[in-house]
Design a protein around this nucleic acid. Structure first.
Lengths: 274, 274
DNA sequence: CGTCCTATTGAAATTCTTCAACACTCGTGG
DNA sequence: CCACGAGTGTTGAAGAATTTCAATAGGACG
């Protein structure tokens, strides 16, 4: 099944703030954050009640009153793969409810690097000043809530808990970015591709990441995205995948479905130690 | 001139928490942050009064009372190049008062990647949980104030302004990390080295970074550090520096002193557009 | 003066990219 | 029903960029 984009959405060009707000449904997530667990569904804006991100995400730090005010400025959208989201310094912020979003950077001659992958319930936006030259695009089908930048910034100022949660997310992203810098700067193509699959395996099979087990998952992006993530060419990625398959480290069920029979073996390839 | 390390300091091994606290002088920075500008020097702990970081840094967000309490747990240290600092998840946090600190990551077989460079008055530490496998080392001579992790964490909890400032720093570091990811993943060796020199030129000559001017600065690290920063080998770095010199984009006065006659020309090499 | 550390340079080897051809899937329209 | 084209992925061969290995030079220091 799939969530079809609203018709009006098809008119959406490259810029987020041109989104037809009339087509949007206000919505928000409520959180199961400790301090707020005593809030009942009935206290909340109608559209937050059924929000997929209710148990996590920034909305969990907000009071019912704040949620209500926010929901008045909120719109919910579905994006198809490749559709642009507000760049992190645009005039709208957003919350990912479902799907994967890539943050990319470009050189003048068109070389591209993915500098971040974000999943639900991540917050998308760069409070306080601009983040130069970063573009956000849907990788998979993506559902988001979006809000006016100004409104969220005001909310942050009056809600230390919200800023706290955003700080946590920033720290997490920073950890991930630095992990990836080691991969980009110092690892070989085989290691990079193995690291990518290992990343996916752990992300999508968190329970069995005891390293003793197997994992099955769908590669959520096309080869070009993988290449842009790893700092390689499509061809090199393809060749390395072929080698992993020949070595029986992975089994490709379809083009996108992968089975890893032995996670420990895959992880070993992540970082050659000889 | 140089700040000699205290004698007791010479015994300091790889781990920060073994620092001889008896040899430390309590100290702290006070900030010229708006909300606190009405504070007089005389209200402050003696050692904060002469702190080099007084006009910026995290201490600027603290009340005189908080500063006083903090200063009781604070020690000041001088580190020589290559000396380790507390890794970002150790049990001590710190504030850089002077010098440059590198954050590095290692693969099992010893390949190294610098994932962050920090300057005064940056805060060193990773509140809330661990940052796996990151090491911090002095690049130049470094002066720091250090504090017990627990104490700072408590301070953060009770001071939203402090958390705000740390959030700002995290966002800045994230921007820088992502900028660098583009360089690591998608730029050629000549571009990488040019980007490195451009970074230094802008950092150390911020006034004249109007791109019309010249810049003179000292490369604050050795070739091995540059290589680890750029994801290259020492030899490649050396060769690219030679080429920049031959092309008269830079003039090497000594091994470490660099003059850039035309910043715009250097910047152009940062990202080939043909 | 010898040693250690840092930096440079050259030549060979390797890795990755580039260029080019081909295969597969899916939807459209004849 | 099949042909066509666009989008995606794979594979091969040649070329380019970077690393590796090895040799040398300069400076600091005892």
């Amino acid at each position: 099944m799939s969530f079809a984009a609203p018709a009006a959405f098809a008119m959406c060009g490259a810029s987020w703030h041109e989104w037809p707000m009339s087509a949007s449904k206000p919505v928000s997530g409520i959180g199961a954050v400790a301090a707020r667990q005593d809030i009942h569904n009935s206290d909340l804006p109608v559209l937050c009640q059924s929000c997929e991100a209710r148990h996590k995400g920034i909305c969990g730090t907000l009071s019912p009153d704040q949620l209500l005010r926010l929901s008045k400025h909120t719109s919910k959208h579905v994006l198809e793969p490749e559709q642009p989201l507000p760049s992190p310094d645009s005039d709208r912020f957003a919350n990912i409810l479902k799907g994967i979003v890539k943050l990319t950077k470009l050189t003048r001659d068109g070389r591209q690097q993915i500098v971040g992958l974000q999943f639900a319930p991540d917050f998308l936006g760069r409070p306080y000043g601009r983040q130069p030259d970063v573009t956000a695009e849907a990788v998979t089908e993506v559902k988001v809530c979006s809000f006016p930048r100004r409104f969220v910034e005001k909310l942050i100022e009056e809600t230390p808990e919200l800023e706290h949660m955003l700080y946590q997310q920033a720290l997490r992203e920073l950890d991930e970015a630095r992990d990836w810098m080691l991969t980009l700067g110092r690892k070989t193509a085989p290691e990079k591709v193995a690291a990518f699959f290992y990343l996916l395996a752990v992300r999508f099979n968190p329970e069995e990441s005891g390293d003793t087990g197997r994992a099955t998952f769908e590669i959520p992006m096309k080869r070009a995205d993988i290449a842009d993530f790893l700092g390689l060419t499509i061809e090199t990625v393809s060749r390395q995948i072929t080698k992993l398959r020949q070595a029986k480290v992975i089994v490709l069920l379809e083009n996108r479905m992968v089975e890893v029979p032995d996670l420990a073996r895959l992880r070993a390839l992540t970082e050659q130690s000889d």
